[in-house]
Simulated assay, not measured.
Amino acid sequence: MTTTTPGAVRPDTAVRANPARDTWNVLTRELKPVVRDPFTLIFSLVQPLVFLGLFAPLLIGSSGLPVGETLQWFVPGVLVMIVLFGTGATGSNLQYEMMTGSHERTLVAPLARSSLLVGRALKEIAPIVVQSLIIVLIAWPFGFTINGPGLVIGLALLAVFGVGLGSLSYTLALKTKDREWLFWGVQQTLIFPLLILSGMLLPLDDGPPWMRAIATVNPVNWVVQAERALFAGDLGSVNVLWGWFSAIILAAIGLWAGVRAIRKSS
């Protein structure tokens, strides 16, 4: 039989929130399904591979340029497309969790609220890097030139861009909640103008002035231009600086909006 001395202080056994530790735990939790089922990464490459296999030959035929030179222009755009379509839709996973009730259970866990968003956003880096490397390796035998330092810097740029875009996708999911139609309506309305006005598939040099003007304020356009410069080995290009600036600003805005939204989530 144990007795408690009057006035004795009980030891504090409560688990305290630690943003760094909690972010790591959320990150590893989100990566486990990817590791267990890596086929999903390959399956999600179907759309980029279709563009690479069907659109690239049309571009080669219309441009009259050598295959290698055309791929050097086109492949970096495909890599940005992977991020745009992949991370732009990732909020639907969070929306599904909200509709099934599992998201509410994570909210009451002894975790920092910010870690629930940041950990999810950082998870996007892994599929971005893996999928980008696969596309680069597929294009390599057909004349696509790989610049080592440019590849590393380009993947890092795509990772930062993906974190920002993924955070905005999660923010949209938190705002739309169980209205799945609204999430996809807003997502589709934004994705395709961003794609077309980035010069990702076709050059905008011969486009109307209003289209070129909008492209100058489109962050996706600058990321695409930066990737092209990096893969061409032009590491000091001003386009690389603008690409990093756009990606960092987008990541900062996305993380700020996402953390703010998840802290208000209930």
Score class of each variant (00 low, 15 high):
residue 66 P to G: 06
residue 261 A to H: 09
residue 47 Q to D: 01
residue 20 A to C: 12
residue 243 G to N: 06
residue 10 R to S: 11
residue 201 L to Y: 03
residue 193 P to Q: 00
residue 74 F to S: 07
residue 91 G to I: 03
residue 4 T to K: 02
residue 231 F to H: 06
residue 193 P to M: 00
residue 112 A to K: 06
residue 139 A to N: 04
residue 197 L to F: 12
residue 180 E to Y: 14
residue 252 A to W: 05
residue 152 V to Y: 01
residue 135 I to E: 11
residue 156 A to D: 14
residue 9 V to M: 01
residue 20 A to P: 08
residue 106 T to G: 13
residue 258 G to P: 06
residue 199 G to K: 03
residue 185 G to D: 03
residue 198 S to E: 06
residue 171 T to C: 09
residue 154 G to K: 01
residue 228 R to Y: 07
residue 74 F to E: 05
residue 191 I to G: 12
residue 242 W to N: 07
residue 189 T to N: 07
residue 150 G to H: 09
residue 85 F to L: 09
residue 19 P to C: 11
residue 102 S to W: 09
residue 224 V to L: 05
residue 99 M to Y: 14
residue 178 D to M: 14
residue 116 L to Q: 05
residue 191 I to Y: 12
residue 241 L to W: 13
residue 121 A to G: 09
residue 172 L to C: 10
residue 120 R to W: 12
residue 88 G to I: 03
residue 52 L to H: 12
residue 240 V to D: 01
residue 196 I to R: 02
residue 148 G to L: 15
residue 190 L to N: 01
residue 37 D to R: 15
residue 31 L to F: 00
residue 12 D to W: 01
residue 84 L to A: 14
residue 195 L to A: 12
residue 49 L to C: 14
residue 5 T to A: 05
residue 247 A to M: 02
residue 125 I to K: 04
residue 47 Q to Y: 04
residue 101 G to V: 05
residue 239 N to S: 15
residue 221 N to P: 10
residue 132 S to L: 11
residue 104 E to A: 08
residue 207 G to N: 11
residue 205 D to W: 06
residue 136 V to E: 03
residue 127 P to V: 07
residue 180 E to H: 13
residue 55 F to V: 13
residue 188 Q to S: 10
residue 209 P to D: 03
residue 260 R to K: 04
residue 50 V to L: 15
residue 250 L to K: 00
residue 166 G to M: 06
residue 213 A to D: 09
residue 40 T to L: 11
residue 35 V to G: 02
residue 145 T to A: 04
residue 146 I to T: 12
residue 207 G to Q: 14
residue 248 I to E: 09
residue 141 P to M: 09
residue 175 K to C: 05
residue 156 A to S: 14
residue 133 L to K: 15
residue 15 V to C: 02
residue 134 I to Q: 07
residue 17 A to K: 02
residue 135 I to S: 12
residue 74 F to Q: 13
residue 79 L to G: 11
residue 3 T to P: 07
residue 144 F to Y: 12
residue 196 I to P: 02
residue 75 V to F: 08
residue 258 G to V: 06
residue 211 M to R: 03
residue 89 A to P: 05
residue 206 D to L: 14
residue 17 A to D: 04
residue 117 L to K: 00
residue 217 V to L: 07
residue 213 A to R: 08
residue 88 G to F: 03
residue 262 I to L: 09
residue 136 V to D: 02
residue 176 T to L: 11
residue 36 R to T: 08
residue 137 L to K: 08
residue 23 T to R: 09
residue 33 P to C: 11
residue 74 F to T: 10
residue 148 G to Q: 15
residue 66 P to M: 08
residue 169 S to G: 09
residue 9 V to Y: 01
residue 104 E to W: 07
residue 133 L to G: 14
residue 26 V to R: 00
residue 163 V to Q: 00
residue 237 S to F: 04
residue 143 G to R: 09
residue 64 G to P: 02
residue 248 I to L: 14
residue 145 T to C: 01
residue 61 G to L: 10
residue 47 Q to E: 04
residue 242 W to C: 03
residue 177 K to Q: 13
residue 265 S to N: 13
residue 17 A to C: 06
residue 17 A to W: 04
residue 78 V to W: 05
residue 45 L to Q: 08
residue 257 A to T: 10
residue 137 L to A: 09
residue 185 G to N: 01
residue 264 K to R: 02
residue 215 A to K: 12
residue 7 G to Q: 02
residue 57 P to F: 10
residue 70 T to Q: 01
residue 168 L to E: 01
residue 248 I to F: 12
residue 118 V to K: 02
